[in-house]
């Protein structure tokens, strides 16, 4: 078996004196969708922020394609091929849709390639093309989420980190977005998906982790988790 594309080993992260991640270990195999589910405050966003280098790690290791990245600054981690669509989308509100996408390609210099990728983004999410000259802040929640994902794709990453893409969105839009995620995965993109909507996440994922107050309490194939009574009770509302 080839090495995992992303691996966290015993990662501890703190905010000030409060320890948020208490030694978590997660693996994503290439071309997999792996999901981390858990309640609010479990540490899901912190996990992604630690991977992306926005939050410093206290103990442990993070390996991307075998390379340690836990001491690498955030802007370099992106260059290595790890992009994130963050919690709350974090669109640039006073840049246009097109400019937001261009920002996603900030580390690239090939104008022609960037234009191509912008067209691909419009193909994936056609509404973005309609809105391309509009300011990011004027978009609806669903459109912003699409923009956030498209923007993350602009750096031609090898792996995508998605932080709660379903949050606050109407079911129709959520389905569209999750369809897009699956399509990207079919084309070979590895995905680490952090979600509160456990059912949807487990439906499209290959593997799942359950995160509770900073520790991984379960790790299994997504289908297993979907049918596990404990998971069903806690996260699937049954």
């Amino acid at each position: 078996m080839s090495q995992p594309i992303l691996e966290l080993k015993g990662v501890h992260t703190s905010y000030g004196v409060i320890e948020v991640l208490k030694g978590i270990s997660i693996k994503v195999e290439p071309k997999q969708i792996v999901t981390v589910i858990g309640a609010n405050g479990a540490g899901k966003t912190t996990t992604l922020m630690t991977i992306s280098g926005c939050v410093p790690i206290q103990k442990g290791e993070i390996l991307f394609n075998g390379q340690p990245i836990h001491r690498t600054p955030a802007h370099q981690i992106l260059k290595m091929g790890l992009a994130q669509s963050p919690e709350g989308r974090k669109i640039f509100p006073r840049l246009t849709v097109k400019e937001n996408l261009e920002m996603g390609a900030f580390t690239r210099n090939d104008k022609a390639g960037i234009q191509q990728d912008i067209e691909k983004a419009y193909h994936l999410f056609p509404i973005l093309k309609d809105r391309q000259k509009q300011l990011g802040g004027t978009l609806s929640g669903g459109e912003q989420q699409m923009l956030a994902i498209a923007r993350a794709l602009m750096s031609r990453p090898k792996m995508l980190l998605l932080d709660e893409p379903s949050l606050g969105l109407a079911p129709m839009i959520i389905l569209k977005i999750f369809d897009a995620i699956q399509e990207l995965n079919r084309e070979g993109m590895s995905v680490l998906l952090v979600e509160q909507n456990a059912r949807l996440a487990l439906k499209i994922a290959h593997w799942g982790y359950v995160l509770e107050t900073g520790t991984v309490t379960m790790s299994a194939a997504a289908q297993e988790l979907l049918h596990d009574p404990r998971v069903q009770a806690a996260y699937l509302g049954e």
Binding site: S52, G53, C54, P73, A74, H75, Q76, L78, K79, A83, Q84, P86, K90, I91, F92, P93, R94, L95, M103, G104, F106, T107, R151, A152, S155
Partner: peptide
């Protein structure tokens, strides 16, 4: 401009 509007997102774009 991007950094002024959202510094965390800017970091995630590879902006130093």
């Amino acid at each position: 401009r991007a950094t002024a509007q959202n510094p965390i997102a800017a970091r995630l774009m590879g902006i130093n």
